[in-house]
Design a protein around this nucleic acid. Sequence first.
DNA 1: TGAATATTTGAGCATATGTTCATACATAAG
DNA 2: CTTATGTATGAACATATGCTCAAATATTCA
Lengths: 125, 125
Amino acid sequence: MPQPDPIEKQDAVNRLRIVHPERVRSACREASPDHELAALSMIYRVLGDPSRLKILMALRRDEMCVCDLAALTGISESAVSHQLRRLKDLSLVRSRRDGQVVYYALDDKHVVLLLDIGLRHIREK
Amino acid sequence: MPQPDPIEKQDAVNRLRIVHPERVRSACREASPDHELAALSMIYRVLGDPSRLKILMALRRDEMCVCDLAALTGISESAVSHQLRRLKDLSLVRSRRDGQVVYYALDDKHVVLLLDIGLRHIREK
DNA sequence: TGAATATTTGAGCATATGTTCATACATAAG
DNA sequence: CTTATGTATGAACATATGCTCAAATATTCA
């Protein structure tokens, strides 16, 4: 799981400037593998949009259908559907069909935690 | 702090489709104000990039200077500096100058929490 | 002072993102 | 079967983002 050591390339071709080689080396050793960083960034990025946040916050209380979420967020039903698909692809949300209406609900225990901590953060600023 | 009620516009000009008016109304009432959603999304979005994540994870252990972070992340020192500025603008990071070297360190108690929960999430998938 | 090192800044560019519009699909009602 | 309703999908477009490159600042050292 350790990353390729960038120090080895130093002074070779790329002449990387490094002030504290030990610190870089240890950070490299303990860094999460790239695929994990990629997956992690996907999660935060999907939370990084006001419309999706509003959707997720609303779903904290109860499941909701697409058109109601559109009314709530003020964007088109199509836009909501697109966003819900992103949330579903990351398993943050699940859907249930009842007739013509599709209800969406939270499908992850961690999201609520992330939302709460984020809120606490900006409110304590 | 309640949001403008979108239901009032229904059937007027925009003919909003709403299946559960009560649910929309209560979600509207309890929704965070737009400026709070905007601030919140800024925080998550700044976490939603692998390079910035790698920087923040490294800073969890110890402060680091720009060129060392560049070596660690594999992007240019300029790119690192740009990213650090974004992190600093959101007060997630602080800087300290020692001679020619500028050291960056975490400046927020919540970020570590957010990172930990995110990691726990993707590892339990 | 002048040269070297560490960082910052701004322009430019390729790619990603969020939205709307038009349209297709799924289910219900007549 | 036909029509209406709720949702999903794909194209298109404007904007945001992350990076590199070139150049400017800041600090140290000879």
